[in-house]
Every structure is written in structure tokens, then in C-alpha cells.
Design a protein around this nucleic acid. Structure first.
Lengths: 161, 161
DNA sequence: GTCGTAATGTTGCATCCTGCAACTATTTAC
DNA sequence: GTAAATAGTTGCAGGATGCAACATTACGAC
């Protein structure tokens, strides 16, 4: 394959990674990147068991558990006991947690918009098309139907207390 | 501005952030992401004063200092005393440090190549063009002339010991 | 030249992130 | 009904991070 193409993607990659990082840095006052990643998973996939959450984040269950502790302390997430399987713990977003995710995404949009605003409309279209193609090849879910599930901000089913 | 364009970029952004993360996870055995970021800055900008390094990474000087401690312990970086300004400390890469950066970049190239390989050549060209335009608008240095300076792996000038 | 101020790093302290190993509570398989 | 697998939590250890306090060095005003 031609190296030039990869070079172009690699360059843009650095840009976007930087944008994402910045959108968080200035973001939620005291929400860390790790915590934000967890919020995003919960927002996009809905309430998750601890194990699945850990797997989605690619961290050890103990890490996911303690991260959940902190999010709960900040009222960004909740812990529920699974009723089918009483071993399991289900973590879900609170309204506050959802808001943090929404705001961060909004900030990122602004940063990207600032970059695109420098270009004529025709080039913006070309970029949209190319980026869509790329994301599709990578098997990513397109933004306009993201998050995949509305992710109801409630426990999976009636939980006693 | 049209939301669709931003959506496309945002989607591709998630893809690339994931790729970058993965290229490190499997990467240097015990080099963390933070350490890797520092190595990249040193590789791309050459030896840096502690203050500038901290600014480039957007962390506090104390963090940069302690991160440098760890990199030095692993023989990936060196500490020098500035001779013009004896307050300053200059950090530079060792050959080992440079190698870590090169290997991570190579891994990332492979991941991106895997994605692009699914597309016909024409689309690859379109992607290259669009990504270049985007990166240029963001003011990023293109990959084919990166790192900007050869970043000589030596102290800025004759340092006594 | 001397004194006050600014710049550069480092250290102490607190908090978060992380993984591994050990342990408890449940569930499932035989 | 007991053994094995699964789900979480806790103890322990090390890296990442920022803020405040401190020592050194440089620079500017006089």
C-alpha cells in the first residue's frame, strides 16, 4: 500500500487525538479521562454489569469497581444489585452523568468546527465523505446514530432498594 | 456549518483515538501512555527544558519532573544541566527512547493499513487528500516531514559532565 | 555592585488510576 | 449436593497528577 495515504491518516490522527484530549482537559472540572471513558460507555451502551464495564474499558474489574466508587461519590453514576444474578452489580448513569458526556461532546464539536470553518464548503464535503468512508471501514458506528441505544437512565428492571 | 461534516469527523475521531490507544497498549511493555507522550514530544521537538516540556504536555512542572525521573530510570531519557541558564534542566532522548517511539509508530501504521486495505485505491486517495486538508487546517505538521527537527540525540551543546 | 523580583526545578502531600492476588458470595454443572 | 466457575471487593504496590512551599539562579532598577 502507498505510504502517503497512511501518512495522511497518521497526521490527522495526531490532530484528532489532541482535540479529544483538549476537549476533556478544559472539560468537566474534576472528571478525569478515565472517568469520562466510563461515562461514555455507560451513555452509549446503557447500564452495564461490572464485568462488562471492565471489559469494555479494558481494565481490571477492581479498577472498574473503584472508578465506579468515585463516580457514585460524585453522583454521576449509580450502583444496583442484579436481581437475576445476585452476584452481579449493574452500573448506570445519573442525569448528571449524562450531562457531563453531552457537554464534553459539545465542546469537541466546537473544536472541530473551528478547524473546518477555515475551509471552503466543497472541501468540507470532501472531508465528510472521506471520513465517513474511513470510519465505516474501521467498523465504527456513525455519529448520527450514536449512542446505539437510547440507554434508558434506569436500572434494567425493578430493583428493590 | 453543517452538522453532518462534524459528525463524520467526530466518528473518525473515535476510530483514530481507539487505534492510537491500542497501538500503545500492545506496545512498549511497561511504558505508559503518559511516558509515551513525553517521548513523542522529545522525539519531535528535540531536547527540551523542563518548563517547555511541561507546557508541551500540558502538565505541571512537578509532574514533568517526576515523569522524567522514571524515564531516566528506564534509560529512555537523559537529564542535562543548561549551561546558559544554570537553573534549567534539559531533557533529551536516549537511543532506547527513540526506538520505543519508532516502534509504536510502526505499530500504528500497521493498524491503519489494516483499515485502509479494505478500500479500493480511489477511495484511499480521496481519504489521503481529505485528511491532509484537514490536518493542514488544524495546523499540524505533515507526517512525511516529521519529526520537524532531526532532534539530535545529544545535549544542546558541550555539557561538562 | 546590590537588592528585589521573576523564572526554573524539586519536594511534600493528597488523590486518582492501574493490576495482581486473595477472599467472599452466588450460580451452575455433574 | 458438592465442586467448579463467575462476579465483586479489598489489600497492596507503583505510576500520574496538581498545588503549595522551598532553593537556586537570572535579570532589572538603582
Amino acid at each position: 500500500m502507498e505510504g502517503t495515504v497512511i501518512d495522511a491518516v497518521l497526521t490527522a490522527s495526531r490532530t484528532l487525538v489532541a482535540v479529544s484530549t483538549r476537549s476533556l482537559g478544559a472539560a468537566a472540572e474534576h472528571t478525569t479521562i478515565a472517568q469520562y471513558r466510563m461515562l461514555v460507555v455507560l451513555a452509549s451502551r446503557g447500564p452495564q454489569r461490572m464485568v462488562d464495564l471492565a471489559a469494555a474499558l479494558d481494565v481490571a474489574p477492581s479498577t472498574a469497581g473503584r472508578m465506579t466508587d468515585r463516580l457514585v461519590r460524585k453522583k454521576l453514576a449509580r450502583r444496583h444489585r442484579g436481581r437475576n444474578d445476585r452476584r452481579s452489580v449493574v452500573v448506570s448513569l445519573t442525569a448528571d452523568g449524562r450531562q457531563v458526556v453531552d457537554e464534553a461532546t459539545a465542546r469537541r464539536r466546537v473544536l472541530i468546527e473551528d478547524i473546518l470553518a477555515k475551509l471552503p464548503s466543497a472541501q468540507q464535503q470532501a472531508i465528510a465523505s472521506a471520513f465517513e468512508t474511513f470510519a465505516a471501514a474501521a467498523g465504527e458506528v456513525p455519529e448520527h446514530l450514536w449512542p446505539p441505544t437510547p440507554a434508558a437512565d434506569v436500572p434494567p428492571a425493578g430493583v428493590p432498594a
